[in-house]
Simulated scan of single mutants.
Amino acid sequence: MPVPAPLTGVVPPVCTPLTPEREVDVESLHRLLDHLTAAGVHGLFVLGSTSEAAYLTDAQRGLVVAETVRHVAGRLPVLAGAIDMTTPRVLEHVAAVTAAGADAVVVTAPFYARTHPAEIARHYRAVAAASPVPVLAYDIPVAVHTKLPADLVLDLAADGVLAGLKDSSGDLAAFREVVTGARTRAGLTGFTVLTGSELIVDAALALGAHGAVPGLANVDPHGYVRLDRLCRAGDTERARTEQERLCALFGLVHAGDPARMGPGSSAIGAFKAALHLRGVIACPATAEPQVPLSEDEVRRVGKCLSAAGLL
C-alpha cells in the first residue's frame, strides 16, 4: 500500500525467523507478521539490522520481502532495507525488493570505505533516481561508521530525494535538529522522521517525531502501540509508566554473556528467544556466525518476560 507522508506510529523492524539449518522459516515469519498486525502496528520494516539482513543471502532477502508483502496483502505499508557497501550494490537491492512489492526502501550511507558528505549525497541521489518507491535514509553509525549530518538529510529532503529518516544513531540533539527542520522548512511537511531507539520513544514523540522503529516491538508490539497512543493523547504520566516498563523489558538484550558473545548476538538472540518462549516462532536460531544463547541465558530472557507480564 502507499506509504503515508508522513508515516506515523509504530513500525517494527521485523525479525527473520530461521530454521535450525539457518533457512528462512516462512511459517514462523507469517505467525510473527500476524502477531504484529494483530497488535495494531502501523507499518513493517524488513531487512534492517534486527532482521539480520547483513547475514542473509540475496535469495533469503528476496524471500523475506516477497513473503511479507504476500502475507500482509496491502493491510500495512512494507518498508524494506536496501543495505550494502556501495551504490551499485544498493541499486541491485532496490530493484529486487521493489520487484518483490516493497512500498518504500530504507538505505544507509555507503560503508566499508569512509565516505565524505558529498559522496553520501551522490549515493542517495542515485538511489532516488532509480527507485520507483520512496527512499528513507537509515542513520546507524554503529554499523556503517558514518553519522548522517542533519543538514545533509534536510537538504536532500528539500530536493525530493529523501522521503524520511530512520534514526538509530542515539544522538538526540541531531535527531531534534532533523525534527525541527522537517517542521519548519518549507516543503517538508510530508517528510517522515522515525526514531530507532526502544528507550526514548516518548521523548522522541514529544520532540515531534512521527513514530518509532523499535526492535523490542517484535516481542511486545502491544506495549509500543499503547505507548504511541498515550503519547498522542497527551497522557504523559501513563506514557512515562509504559515507557519505563518497556525500558525494563529491554534489559533482556543483556542476557548474553559479553565474555563470549557480542552485543548483536545477545540482543537478536534475546528477541528471538523471547518470541520462541511466547510461542510466536518455532526456533530461536540466529544467523551464523552469531553465538546462540545458552539455556541459562534463555532463562534470563524468560524472567524479563515474566516481569513484564508477557509470560
Score class of each variant (00 low, 15 high):
136 L>K: 09
217 A>E: 06
170 G>K: 01
248 A>C: 12
140 I>C: 09
188 L>V: 06
142 V>D: 06
237 E>H: 15
161 V>F: 01
187 G>V: 07
169 S>Y: 08
197 S>L: 09
248 A>E: 14
175 F>A: 01
196 G>S: 13
202 D>G: 09
149 P>T: 00
179 V>P: 01
249 L>Y: 08
245 R>C: 05
174 A>K: 04
182 A>F: 06
240 R>M: 12
184 T>V: 12
242 E>G: 05
185 R>D: 00
243 Q>T: 00
190 G>K: 06
212 A>K: 08
212 A>G: 12
238 R>Q: 13
244 E>K: 15
227 L>F: 09
172 L>Y: 15
208 G>W: 14
155 D>G: 01
163 A>S: 15
168 S>A: 14
231 C>V: 08
224 Y>F: 15
245 R>H: 12
247 C>F: 12
181 G>P: 02
195 T>G: 14
180 T>A: 15
159 D>A: 14
192 T>I: 03
160 G>E: 06
187 G>I: 07
159 D>C: 07
223 G>H: 02
244 E>M: 15
191 F>Y: 05
142 V>Y: 03
175 F>L: 10
193 V>Q: 08
147 K>L: 12
178 V>M: 03
185 R>P: 03
148 L>S: 02
199 L>D: 05
144 V>M: 05
215 G>S: 12
187 G>P: 01
167 D>F: 06
183 R>Q: 12
160 G>K: 02
169 S>W: 07
199 L>P: 00
200 I>K: 11
222 H>N: 01
149 P>R: 02
137 A>C: 08
223 G>E: 01
248 A>N: 12
249 L>V: 04
236 T>E: 10
245 R>P: 09
239 A>W: 13
212 A>L: 10
203 A>E: 07
207 L>T: 05
231 C>K: 14
228 D>R: 03
201 V>Q: 12
180 T>S: 11
136 L>V: 09
176 R>Y: 14
210 H>G: 08
138 Y>D: 04
190 G>N: 04
246 L>E: 00
189 T>V: 00
192 T>G: 13
239 A>N: 07
220 D>W: 07
161 V>H: 01
185 R>G: 01
241 T>Y: 13
200 I>N: 05
154 L>H: 04
136 L>A: 11
224 Y>I: 01
206 A>M: 10
213 V>Y: 14
206 A>S: 13
249 L>A: 05
174 A>Q: 05
220 D>E: 09
163 A>W: 01
200 I>H: 13
146 T>S: 15
186 A>C: 08
201 V>N: 01
162 L>C: 02
234 G>F: 12
231 C>M: 10
190 G>Q: 05
248 A>Q: 14
189 T>F: 15
176 R>S: 11
224 Y>V: 00
181 G>Q: 04
157 A>H: 04
187 G>R: 07
140 I>V: 14
177 E>D: 14
233 A>V: 07
